[in-house]
Amino acid sequence: MVSTTHFLVLGAILFTIGTVGVIIRRNVIIMFMCVELMLNAVNLTFLAFARHFNQIDAQIFVFFVMTVAAAEAAVGLALIVQLARRTNSVDIDQADTMKW
């Protein structure tokens, strides 16, 4: 059986990669994808602990995280579409005005 530590280390690595992506990329869509990647790393950590402590509650929590992530993706992508329509770009640096 693969130990819990292995899964936690992988979760930490994936979370860090997601953070780096959010910092270095200026494309809104890719920044959003990196946020999804970070959520997924956290889900992996949750499930590792679910097995470690033999508790079902962490799986329920992952279920809710996924549901919220789906809702967030729908609203976020609608915002991105609207932003791209108004500024004609998906560069986050272009979105620096409060009013168009």
Binding site: L47, A50, R51, Q59, F63
Partner: peptide, 15 residues
């Protein structure tokens, strides 16, 4: 696949 390995089959399918 890792979720499946952790014994969370339903979550893996949802994923």
């Amino acid at each position: 696949i890792l979720f499946f390995q952790l014994g969370a089959e339903f979550i893996a399918a949802i994923q």
